[in-house]
Simulated assay, not measured.
Amino acid sequence: MQIAGRTAIVTGGGAGIGAAIARALVDAGARVVVTDVDAVAVERVADALSARVPGSAVALAGDASSVDHIDAAVALAQDRFGPVAFYFANAGIAGAPGLAATDDEWATALDVNLLAHIRAARRLVPEWVERGEGYFVSTASAAGLLTQLGSATYSVTKHAVVGFAEWLNVTYADQGVRVSCLCPMGVDTKLLRPGDIDDDPQAQLMQRAVESAGEVLTPERVAADVLDAVEDERFLILPHPEVLDMYRQKGSDYDRWLRGMRRVQQGLAAATGTA
């Protein structure tokens, strides 16, 4: 789908992958509403984009999982730039460990990592069906195809994101709505490296699991892969191509894969003192 001249919304755009996607969109000729819960960070990103290409971006601070915020982002985009053609549901949180995660932590992870996508699609997809085109891009994770050692909430919600994106594609692609799902492994962002995990063995386990699985990519590299996939209208976006081999191994012998993951977890747990 052509990007130049179109309007996009990017959530979680105050830093990391979201900010990189917003820059790539502007460079490709799109106009962008950038949203983030961090008002200072998202204003900084939008100002830099407008300095790069005057009038190309505007910021909106708020919670990406809020229906009111989604409505406000769509209204702002339509008012400033025109109908929304692209929605990048990129905002996410790292989550919490296993059975120790509280109901509140589960609820927050489900809200931000999954329901934000569902609520945005509910708002935009009917309009796109009427127009005969639109594009929804969900940021999931390789954890959504495999799993995430150290965080049950992250693993479960990212699996759900992949499932929802698949459902959207199957249900609406023949009506002009395109859907892609981004599933990277390690990306050099605060989500992977928050800098405050010295006293949190489970967070250390999660970080080591990601960093040891493959190359840690820059957000800019991931954003370039995202735009290539959008232009090709390709569903699965794998900045780490080795994830596909891992996914195939998982599907070909699930029990063997689970045994292998337990061995990896045991090794990482010994290294982080959680064994």
Rank of each mutant, 00 (worst) to 15 (best):
G5N: 08
T7Y: 04
A8E: 13
T11S: 14
G12Q: 06
A15D: 13
I17L: 13
G18C: 04
G18R: 06
L25E: 05
L25P: 05
L25F: 14
V26R: 00
A28E: 07
R31Y: 15
V37A: 11
A39D: 10
A41R: 08
E43N: 11
S50H: 04
A51F: 08
V53H: 09
V58A: 09
A61E: 00
A61H: 04
D68R: 11
A73P: 06
L76W: 03
D79M: 11
R80A: 12
F81K: 04
A89H: 12
N90S: 08
N90D: 08
N90Y: 05
A96G: 07
A96C: 09
G98E: 03
T102M: 09
E105K: 00
W106A: 05
T108F: 09
T108K: 13
L110H: 03
L110S: 06
N113I: 08
N113E: 04
N113F: 02
E127K: 05
Y135Q: 01
F136H: 07
V137W: 02
T139M: 12
S141N: 07
L146G: 01
T147Y: 04
Q148T: 11
A152Q: 03
A152I: 02
Y154K: 00
Y154M: 01
K158V: 01
V161Q: 02
V161I: 02
V161N: 03
G163E: 02
F164S: 02
F164D: 01
A165V: 00
A165W: 00
L168A: 03
V170D: 14
T171F: 07
Y172S: 03
A173P: 02
A173Q: 14
A173T: 13
D174Q: 12
G186V: 10
G186Y: 00
L192M: 10
P194E: 07
G195T: 11
L205F: 04
R208L: 15
A209C: 09
E211V: 14
G214K: 06
T218R: 13
T218N: 06
E220D: 15
R221A: 13
R221T: 14
L227K: 07
D228C: 08
E231H: 04
R234C: 08
L238N: 05
L238K: 12
L238Q: 10
P241S: 05
D245A: 15
R248W: 10
K250M: 12
G251P: 03
D255C: 07
G267Q: 13
L268M: 07
A269G: 15
A270D: 12
A270P: 02
A271C: 05
G273M: 02
T274R: 13
